Amino acid sequence: MASATLTAPPTAAGRRPFTGGERTGLSDLPPLTTTVPRQYVHRTAVSEVFLTDWRRAGTDGWVVSAQWPRAHSFYGPVDGLHDPVLLVETMRQASILLSHVAHGVPLDHPIIWQDLHYSLVPEALRVTGTPAEIELHITDHDLVYRGKRLASARQLYRVRRDGTELARAELNFSCHSPAVYRRLRGKYSDLQRANDRKLDLAEPVAPRLVARDRTGDVVLSPTGHANRWQLRVNTAHPVLFDHPVDHAPGMLMVEAARQAAHAAAGPGFSLPVDMACSFHRYAELDAPCWVEATVAGRDGRDHLLLDVDIRQNGQSVFTARAASQSIR
């Protein structure tokens, strides 16, 4: 499971960000664009908000716009291609945004992932001389309500860049009130207590082994066993831990899967063009998580298949299958 919670002042559902001169009377100026309010995507840092607008598309669909920078402190390009995990973060933000503006979920309600899957077109990730303008065409399916409030949903994504298909994806998530979340989390719902009990930061593997440039961005720690690592949980990381949380966040799990798949595949297989992830339970901060990767053969497109399992206290908290393509 993975969740995101951020308390913010109430706002009207369906409100859109400032996008045009008509709101100031400056109708002779070209349309102006900004990011959506950071509270709508459960982010503290405005710089980590990638969404710029949203609009309705039919009775059960939405188009969400985003912009990907040419460089980013964490989701930076590799070999001239945008980071595919940036797609997952953009989906995360879009699902949270729509839960609030389309379905009226209060801003203090955690959004919890069950599973996600993406399949992308590598060439559409190519970095150019300008930021990438992204459109996520999203349709809602299997909406479940508890009373008048959304309890869970399945979203299908068609992701386009400048009119060209970039990816197709699916995300399943649930929404919970703060009271329900506290019951689910038990003693771990106490944010301060959960962080006071966190483990010391483990040593990193060499960044080059996991396609990273900086030690601070490495989320795996060596164990002395091939293709087995301890999850490195750095609660001071400014992107993965944009704000304090009571458990290891879902984006950390996805990044760990990507790094483990890269390390297990070896040089030349650094682009996860397809990934399916399942979040089984919360990963707590007070016990080690063990990350294991297994090479599972190749698919019909000659992509290397890798299975990743993250376990804590003898139970699986997260699993993923990645299909990696050589980009060298």
Rank of each mutant, 00 (worst) to 15 (best):
Trp62Cys: 04
Pro69Tyr: 00
Glu165Val: 14
Arg182Ile: 04
Ala169Thr: 04
Pro69Gly: 01
Trp62Ile: 04
Trp229Gln: 03
Leu184Lys: 12
Met1Glu: 10
Ala132Trp: 00
Asp53Trp: 13
His72Cys: 06
Gly297Tyr: 02
Ala293Cys: 08
Val85Tyr: 06
Arg328Pro: 11
Thr7Ser: 14
Ala124Met: 01
Leu240Pro: 06
Ala12Arg: 15
Pro122Phe: 06
Val49Asn: 08
Gly224Asp: 03
Thr11Leu: 14
Val105Gly: 08
Asp60Val: 09
Phe269Met: 10
Asp309Pro: 00
Asn172Val: 15
Thr90Val: 05
Val78Tyr: 07
Ala124Lys: 04
Trp68Cys: 03
Arg301Asn: 08
Ile112Asp: 02
Val219Leu: 13
Ser174His: 07
Leu231Lys: 10
Val205Pro: 02
Arg161Gln: 13
Val308Ser: 09
Leu304Ile: 11
Asp162Thr: 13
Ala71Leu: 07
Asp196Leu: 15
Pro110Cys: 04
His141Thr: 07
Pro9Ile: 14
Ser47Phe: 02
Arg56Phe: 01
Gly104Phe: 05
Gly20Leu: 01
Pro249Ala: 08
Val105Cys: 05
Pro178Met: 06
Ala283Thr: 13
Pro272Glu: 02
Pro249Val: 08
Trp62Asp: 06
Arg23Met: 07
Ile111His: 05
Leu304Thr: 11
Ser3Met: 10
Val64Thr: 10
His176Asp: 10
Thr128Arg: 15
Pro244Tyr: 08
Pro77Val: 03
Gly21Ile: 07
Thr128Gly: 13
Gly186Met: 12
